[in-house]
Design a protein around this nucleic acid. Structure first.
Lengths: 212, 212
DNA sequence: TAGATTGTTAATCGATTAACAATC
DNA sequence: TAGATTGTTAATCGATTAACAATC
């Protein structure tokens, strides 16, 4: 049931969420049509690039007018798979974990976090933002029973790899690692190592450039 | 005093932090030498790519042996400017803000968050993780006095743009926006719109691909 | 019609990969 | 010496930009 007959290039895929955000903002303003120029400005991308990206899955723009916001938004939701629900678990209910649980946008992207895990006895058995917290001892058992395929790691760096190992054993197919540590998994598991600090390098670089 | 005689390509710059992370891990294991193969595996990048990236700023590898971990780490710190201290403020002391204040790695990257701002009267005047919280009313005044150039936005989406406007007025030169909203700033200000949910699109895409 | 903006082709640019000699 | 791994050149690949006719 995947609408993946369309092969979306890697870089286009990274830009689409930015376009989507812009469309949501347009809708909030009751704007009916939007130009590639405007989308590009919001996404910090060239307008031609925007049109080309959109053309990949049957662009529906009107010359002289632009794109119908509602139509384009619906189309993007389809391509990005925002209508598919993916259940996920999150391991590590610290500050970062809590921030992610409540980050507005994850739910919107179809990511339902259904269970949390932590090693802190004070948290186990409680609810955080409406989700039950289980012991990390139970990861294997619970994930297998619930047949969850996506996991988010927000534990301290030193535990990230061993948690990942357990997750893989439990049958997890995709891991999103926010812990500030490099982890490795077997090739059949999709891994995304998110490094929040990495963006800093880019930011500082451009800042230094502007000051020259 | 910028060592920017070396022009680092955009994509290389994005990979360097990942290499750096790997080097730190090697050092923790007391590993003396590391191969481009190993770095590449950790960073999910081709080994040739790694060597080419490193060669850009005078590679120091030894054929048949690899790179000296300590030397390479020091070199990367120089290129990434991790030794320069950048003072910053953070606006929005919610879950996300707190997570970022304490995220291990920001300090390591030379980002010192020196002041916080929030509109919640209960927080104003208190300290969070050792930083004073000021009223958002005082942004203009305080940033100008402290001559801060970098700001991190972690307020709810609907306030992001108006906060950004004030920051620009206060003389901020670089904005790192974690609020789930697109914001726009004058061209003399460096802007990075971070979309935590954007990574999800990539993750789901690969996941769907594997399942075909 | 005139102005705006799209869709697309061709040209450019830069990133990635392949191949291999050089070196420890 | 044999094996491992680097550094670099050349070839490929894909992304970005420029140009412009087509369309509303």
């Amino acid at each position: 049931m995947h609408s993946d007959s369309i092969k979306v290039p890697k870089f286009t895929l990274k830009r689409l969420p930015l376009y989507y955000r812009c469309l949501r903002a347009c809708l909030d303003r009751n704007q009916e049509y939007v130009s590639s120029e405007q989308i590009g400005k919001a996404a910090q991308v060239n307008a031609v690039q925007v049109r080309k990206d959109l053309a990949l899955f049957g662009a529906m723009g009107t010359p002289g007018v632009g794109y119908c916001v509602a139509d384009l938004k619906a189309k993007l939701e389809e391509v990005l798979g925002l209508n598919n629900v993916n259940e996920a678990v999150l391991i590590g209910v610290g500050r970062l974990g809590r921030a992610i649980i409540d980050y507005p946008g994850f739910e919107r992207y179809g990511l339902h976090i259904v269970a949390l895990f932590d090693s802190n006895p004070e948290l186990i058995g409680t609810q955080v933002s409406g989700r039950p917290v289980f012991s990390t001892q139970e990861i294997l058992h619970i994930i297998r029973r619930l047949q969850i395929k996506v996991a988010i790691i927000t534990v301290p760096a030193e535990y990230a790899q061993s948690i990942a190992n357990v997750l893989v054993e439990a049958g997890i197919r995709a891991i999103w690692n926010f812990a500030p540590a490099v982890i490795e998994v077997p090739s059949h598991v999709v891994l995304r190592n998110e490094d929040l600090a990495a963006g800093l390098a880019t930011l500082f670089h451009y800042l230094a450039e502007r000051n020259e």
